[in-house]
C-alpha cells in the first residue's frame, strides 16, 4: 500500500499555480515514477497536486515549422500525432521503445524531463532538436534551452512553485537526419543502458550542424559538444565519424550498475554514435539526390 498523502485537485492552471505558490506540494502527473518511488521508500503525509484535470497542458500544436508540446502530453500521444514523424523522427523512435504500453498511456513528457533521471528516454531526442522548455508559476513564465535546464543527477532548474508548461522546438531542416537508438537488456519494459540521439544537417555536401545527445552514461543526459564540433564544416568521412564517436565516448562518465559496466557503456557509445552518424550521413545525403 502507498503511504498516506494529501491530494489537491485543481481544475484550472491558475488554481494549480496558486496552490504550488502557497503550499508545499509536488505536482503529480502520470505518477509512473512518483508512485513507485513513494511505495518503495516514501514517507507518509506528503502533499501532491494532481494535474489530471488540466486539459490545457496536454496536446501538440504545430505552427509553421514550430512544434509546441504541452507538458502533460503522454508518450502515447506522441505516437498518435500524425505530424510527429516529420517534426521529430528521433522522438517517435524513442516513444516506440519507451517502457511499455500502459506506461506510455500515463507517463508525461514533463514528468520524464523534470524527474531529471540520467536514463530519461525523452531527453536525448529533445536535446537533438534543440528543444526549449517553458516553465510557468504564479509569478510568471520563463523559457530556457532544455540543455541548460538539466543540472545534474536528478537535478534540474525546475523550481518547486513551477510547472513545465510546454516543450517547443523547430522542425529539423529538409536536408537533415534525426535518429535515436536505445540499447537495453530487452526491447520493451527496459531501463536504458545507453540512449543516443543524433541530428546531422547537410548543406551543399557539407555538415553544417550536428547534435549528439547521450543518455544513461553520465549523471545527467548531455550533449557531446566537442564531438559535435568535429563534424562541422565538411563531408562526414568514416574517419571523421569515428573520431567524433570516440570523442563522445570519452566525454561520457558512465557507472557500473546492475544493467551494464561502465566500460561496456563507453564502448557502446563509441559504436552507437558511429552507427547513427553513418546512417544519418547516408540518409541525409540520399535526400540531396532526390
Amino acid at each position: 500500500m502507498l503511504p498516506s498523502f494529501e491530494l489537491l485537485e485543481p481544475h484550472s492552471l491558475d488554481e494549480a499555480l496558486k496552490m504550488l505558490a502557497t503550499s508545499e506540494a509536488t505536482p503529480l502527473a502520470g505518477g509512473t515514477n512518483l508512485l513507485p518511488d513513494l511505495r518503495a521508500h516514501g514517507r507518509a503525509g506528503r502533499r501532491f497536486i494532481s494535474l489530471a484535470a488540466l486539459d490545457q497542458l496536454r496536446g501538440v500544436e504545430h505552427k509553421g515549422n514550430r512544434v509546441i508540446m504541452g507538458g502533460s502530453t503522454t508518450l502515447n500521444d506522441i505516437l498518435r500525432d500524425p505530424l510527429m514523424p516529420k517534426a521529430a523522427p528521433s522522438l517517435v523512435s524513442m516513444a516506440k521503445v519507451f517502457a511499455g504500453t500502459m506506461i506510455r498511456n500515463a507517463a508525461t513528457i514533463a514528468g520524464n524531463i523534470c524527474y531529471g533521471s540520467p536514463s530519461a528516454d525523452a531527453i536525448p531526442p529533445l536535446l537533438s532538436v534543440d528543444a526549449e522548455v517553458t516553465l510557468t508559476s504564479a509569478a510568471g513564465e520563463r523559457t530556457l534551452p532544455l540543455d541548460s535546464f538539466l543540472l545534474g543527477y536528478k537535478k534540474t532548474a525546475h523550481q518547486p512553485d513551477e510547472l513545465l508548461k510546454t516543450v517547443a522546438w523547430t522542425i529539423p531542416a529538409a536536408d537533415s537526419a534525426n535518429l535515436f537508438y536505445k540499447l537495453g537488456r530487452r526491447r520493451g519494459d527496459a531501463i536504458t543502458v545507453v540512449g543516443v540521439a543524433v541530428t546531422v544537417v547537410i548543406e551543399s555536401g557539407s555538415c553544417s550542424k550536428a547534435r549528439i545527445a547521450l543518455g544513461s552514461v553520465a549523471p545527467t543526459v548531455f550533449r557531446a559538444k566537442e564531438a559535435e564540433n568535429i563534424l562541422i564544416g565538411g563531408p562526414l568521412t568514416a574517419a571523421t565519424i569515428d573520431q567524433a564517436a570516440l570523442t563522445a565516448a570519452q566525454a561520457s562518465r558512465p557507472i557500473d550498475d546492475i544493467r551494464a559496466s561502465a566500460e561496456y557503456r563507453r564502448h557502446a557509445v563509441h559504436m552507437l554514435v558511429r552507427r547513427l552518424l553513418t546512417q544519418a550521413w547516408q540518409t541525409s545525403g540520399a535526400k540531396q539526390h532526390d
Partner: peptide
Amino acid sequence: GEVVDSCLTLAWN
C-alpha cells in the same frame, strides 16, 4: 477504453 496499470492509477482519478 485506454489500457492502464491499475497499480499506478489512483482511485480518485
